[in-house]
């Protein structure tokens, strides 16, 4: 067995080790992504409201 396939086989526990690592990557990556998206959208909403308030008072 090549070193890579031996590593991937995880001594016969590949079916448990790799899904565990994948879940960590998916959940932590997903939470980070979602947190960034929420910050962007909140900042965009705030900019829009402030912009409207400025334009409104100038009219």
């Amino acid at each position: 067995m090549s070193p890579l396939s031996e590593f991937l086989a995880m001594g016969g526990y590949a079916l448990f080790v790799w899904p565990a690592m994948a879940m960590v990557a998916v959940v932590l990556g997903g939470l980070l992504f979602e947190s960034l998206r929420q910050l962007r959208s909140a900042e965009a909403d705030l900019a829009a409201v402030e912009d409207r308030a400025r334009n409104g008072s100038r009219r």
Partner: peptide, 10 residues
């Protein structure tokens, strides 16, 4: 065996 590696995230 290698299953102990799950400990490092669990």
């Amino acid at each position: 065996g290698e299953s102990v590696r799950i400990m490092y995230v669990h």
